[in-house]
């Protein structure tokens, strides 16, 4: 059985009907199905407006889809009772793109990471402090950073704190919605390495939402490409994406930036020398 299964999910926004106009349905997601196995990472690719983030929200249980089911660990996310929901919440975590707006600016790093622990773990203050110090150490930060406020961290450091918060309860799955897109290359590689490491240590599963094939390729086992609310390509082996025949996927692959100037695509006299 898969860890997570999304079955024929259809969703749309702004279908407000009024006296003057009939409901205009524009599907953000139409008939999307996918499944993620325990311990694997699926990369979800697509240009902006393809519905990637909406799918992420649907999977997290934040946006009730109009049709379809989301089944996590054998339970339907949207029909379960409150108690099951609370139990399942700890196994399903998220890291968003904008780290500054996903933390409370008035809390210290200790409080930010401690929040899920307080809700679920009931540790003694000393134990909790030790756990937080361990978590900080795991994401490559200092235990002394505990006392700092979000504004005292750089974007990359704060993203690490968001990751520490997400892994605090040792979840089964993390949804990473453009989590590394705003970071510079060195930070990006560091965080991707960290995520890979955590994956092998805890057997975590990821849904890695991004528009950047380069980042998705370096962390994912399988790749799924979306366009206009539909899944247009599923590559169970991530290397299949380069041989895909679908025009949109081809275009995405063609716009990968070169890693060396000799491979540049914008043709000029000097290039390809």
């Amino acid at each position: 059985m898969s860890l997570l299964e999304v079955k024929e999910v259809t969703h749309s926004y702004g279908s407000s009907r009024s006296f003057w106009r009939s409901a205009k349905e524009e599907h953000v997601l139409s008939d999307v199905s996918l499944s993620i196995e325990q311990g694997s990472c699926m990369g979800l690719l697509g240009t902006s407006g393809a519905g990637k983030s909406t799918l992420g929200k649907v999977i997290l249980g934040l946006e009730k889809p109009q049709k379809g089911k989301v089944i996590f660990q054998g339970q339907d996310l949207y029909t379960m009772d409150a108690l099951t929901r609370k139990r399942i919440r700890r196994d399903l975590q998220v890291v968003f793109q904008d780290s500054y707006s996903s933390v409370n600016p008035r809390l210290t790093a200790e409080k930010i990471i401690g929040e899920p622990l307080e809700n679920y773990e009931k540790l003694s203050p000393a134990e909790q402090k030790r756990t937080i110090a361990d978590l900080l150490d795991m994401v490559g930060l200092d235990a002394e950073d505990m006392k700092k406020y979000p504004r005292q961290f750089s974007g990359g450091q704060l993203q690490r704190i968001s990751i520490a918060r997400a892994i605090a309860l040792k979840p089964k799955m993390i949804v990473l919605d453009e989590s590394v897109s705003s970071l510079d290359m060195v930070n990006q590689t560091n965080i991707l390495n960290l995520l890979n490491e955590l994956k092998s240590v805890y057997g975590l599963s990821y849904l890695f939402i991004t528009h950047d094939i380069r980042a998705a390729y370096s962390i994912s086992d399988s790749l799924t490409v979306m366009e206009k609310g539909k899944i247009i390509e599923v590559c169970n082996d991530k290397n299949e994406v380069f041989t895909s025949q679908h025009p949109t996927v081809k275009k995405l692959v063609a716009s990968i930036l070169p890693e060396h100037p000799r491979n540049r695509t914008i043709s000029r006299g000097k290039s390809r020398a």
Binding site: I213, I256, E259, A273
Partner: peptide, 30 residues
């Protein structure tokens, strides 16, 4: 630009170059 990518001199440049994600497609292209 060609010299920098082929023969980086400074430690920091080397670190930056190492941070590039490597894709098989780039190797095939080259």
């Amino acid at each position: 630009v060609y010299r920098l990518f082929d023969f980086p001199q400074h430690e920091y440049t080397k670190k930056l170059l190492q941070a590039r994600p490597v894709l098989p497609v780039n190797e095939e292209l080259s």
